[in-house]
């Protein structure tokens, strides 16, 4: 833990300075800059999770996670049990746009990274600011980026899920890109709402990220309500079934989707 805190204290200012410099140096093409900065942050997150595993702070298997991802742009939705899942997910994806709380954009040290990497400012107190978020997110998808959204809007409660918001599904429907559901577990739980940083559990927390399903919004006629309902129901089913961490085939009689005709 002391090594972790020491490395963070040493590297965080260097990282902030590096991104501030890159933000200026790569100012010519914002899409290219975002792609490069996302790749750098993803690589950094993978390195971070490697040394966290080596030092026994947490464990994440970088090789076995997230199979069968679409090649092109998509909206990745996931439950959010711990703060570590953000870095793990972005590291495994190799870069993606995300939506961050507006408060983070007020931190001067983070601004070059957030703006440079194409992070989208989330909704503030104005309920109609969702329009800007949807517009920015669809533009990012049109530029070929993947987009990560935690549809609960905040960290998940222990062994439960909050209701899913509709923004991720509306964005996928408007951009006409698939929704990738990723399930995340952290056992024992750490960096959750009720387990702070300075209270690490024993044994070492193990992070697991798996692709649960890939859904094409065309199958619900680009209806974001229906899409949310299907995806949220599948997540709740996964949680109810004891969170088996392997992609679970959806049988025809259990599928919430209208299945294609066998004779077609």
């Amino acid at each position: 833990m002391a090594i972790t805190l020491g490395l963070h204290a040493l590297l965080a200012p260097i990282g902030s300075l590096m991104f501030a410099v890159l933000y200026v140096v790569w100012r010519g093409d914002p899409v290219r800059r975002a792609r490069r900065m996302q790749a750098i942050t993803a690589w950094s997150y993978r390195v971070m999770h490697r040394w966290l595993t080596v030092f026994g702070v947490t464990s994440l298997d970088l090789q076995k996670s997230l199979a069968e991802l679409p090649d092109g742009p998509c909206v990745v939705v996931a439950n959010h049990p711990t703060l570590m899942d953000v870095t793990a997910l972005l590291g495994l994806l190799g870069g993606a746009s995300t939506v961050a709380k507006p408060d983070l954009f007020e931190r001067r040290s983070l601004r070059p990274l957030l703006h440079g990497a194409g992070v989208i400012r989330g909704t503030g107190s104005d309920p109609l600011s969702a329009q800007r978020v949807v517009d920015d997110a669809t533009a990012a998808l049109a530029a070929g980026f993947r987009l990560v959204i935690f549809p609960e809007g905040t960290r998940s409660p222990r062994d439960a899920l909050l209701p899913f918001g509709r923004a991720a599904f509306e964005i996928a429907c408007r951009a006409r890109v698939p929704v990738v559901s990723v399930t995340i577990t952290c056992a024992p739980l750490w960096l959750s709402k009720d387990r702070p940083f300075l209270d690490p559990p024993h044994p070492t927390p193990v992070l697991n990220l798996r692709t649960l399903a890939v859904d094409d919004p065309a199958r619900v006629d680009y209806d974001s309500r229906a899409l949310r309902q299907v995806v949220e129901a599948r997540f709740r089913n996964w949680m109810r079934l004891g969170r088996p961490h392997s992609p679970t085939p959806i049988h025809e009689d259990e599928s919430p989707w209208p299945m294609p005709s066998k004779t077609a």
Partner: peptide
């Protein structure tokens, strides 16, 4: 949710002719 707010704002404009400004605190 936030997307409902957008749809409601459109419906209010259509029904009552009242437009809600974006980014109004």
């Amino acid at each position: 949710d936030s997307i409902d707010a957008l749809e409601l704002a459109l419906a209010i404009h259509s029904e009552f002719g009242v437009r809600t400004k974006e980014n109004d605190e």
